[in-house]
Amino acid sequence: MSIDYKGKVAIVTGAGNGLGKSHAIALAARGAKVVVNDLGGSVDGSGGSISAAQEVVNHINAAGGEAIVNGANVTKEDEVAAMVKETMDKWGRVDILVNNAGILRDKTFHKMTLADFRTVIDVHLVGTAICTHAVWPIMREQTYGRIVCTSSPSGLHGIFGQANYGAAKAGMIGFMNALHLEGAKYGIKINLLSPSAKTRMTLDIGIPEPILDQMTPEAITAAMLFLVSEDAPSRAIVSCAAGGYARGYVVETDGIYLPPDDQTPEEIAARWDEISSTDNVHYYENSSGPSMNFMNKAKDFADKN
């Protein structure tokens, strides 16, 4: 079955370079009309120019696709609103949003300023929320929408020197979980990419060149294209790099029940290995899952005693 986006309109943020550029070109090649958004700043977010994004638009249009450029700063609500209005005025709908814009301000936490912490959170997490909030009413009205947020192994597993970046990327998991539930009856699906690829944001982190050369943006784009397709899942975390693809989950161990007299730190310490055992883990569809697990354990204990 071939996947295409004919008749669909997509907004891709941070699309002047790297992953966003690859995403925008691939969506257009498969029939989508694309807004190529990029503020055009450096890796740390300073400066700005739409020249890179315009080059992507020129490439798409020269290849027979349809694209427009937009330089909105994803942290500015008025600029994002204007971008969405321009899209609606031109094409009348927004079917796909790929939240890809991002910056890096890496430092160990004790050397990091809180200004750098806030700035990275603002671009990655708040910027994702601002863009999503701007298209959400449109997607609800259409009863159709596909949203991809760009998380990271830093958010899922941690990377030294990226407390700000990792916090932003981990925050997207909670964001996705809530919107998955809120969007379900309106035909809106939301997913996360957790990519590693050769881009200007990864050139200085010490990955050997032979490995880095395999980590193409196009390999990540293949997963993105699936996650914004009509038959996409929702609430999926797709970890991907160099042609490898896996699904990430937030899970809990089965855990234990302690009766009231045993609910002490000493008893928790004594049974920590049992609490931590991964022999039996659970994936929950919503936040009531863990509570029900523990309530059932309490009921089983009461029934036996």
Results as ranks from 00 to 15, higher is better:
N305W: 15
I25K: 04
W91A: 12
H133S: 13
P195Y: 02
G14E: 06
T216I: 01
L181A: 13
G45A: 11
S287C: 12
D262P: 00
V120N: 00
R105H: 11
A298E: 11
I205L: 09
F117Y: 11
A15Y: 02
L192D: 00
P137W: 13
K297S: 07
K33T: 11
S22W: 00
F175K: 08
G47W: 12
A53Q: 02
P265L: 04
A32S: 14
P265N: 02
A53S: 10
G166F: 03
G174P: 05
A184R: 14
L258V: 04
A302M: 15
H180L: 14
V57H: 01
A246C: 14
D300W: 15
G18R: 01
A52V: 08
M201F: 01
A246F: 09
L114R: 14
P137Y: 07
V57C: 05
T108Y: 09
V43I: 12
F226W: 11
I103E: 04
D38C: 04
T278S: 13
P208F: 11
E266V: 01
A101N: 04
V251A: 10
G41E: 12
A24H: 03
A101S: 07
S234Y: 08
G183M: 05
S234A: 15
I205T: 11
E230D: 15
G155M: 03
V94F: 12
L203Q: 12
I68F: 10
G127E: 07
H282R: 13
K76T: 05
A232P: 01
E274M: 08
C131V: 05
E79R: 03
S42I: 05
N73C: 12
E266Q: 03
I50C: 06
F175V: 11
V98I: 08
E141V: 09
D106W: 02
A101P: 04
I68E: 08
C240I: 04
A302W: 15
H157D: 05
V43E: 03
G20A: 13
A72F: 03
S277G: 05
G255P: 02
G64V: 02
G14R: 00
N296V: 10
S154G: 11
Y249P: 06
E252R: 11
G174E: 12
I190W: 02
D4E: 13
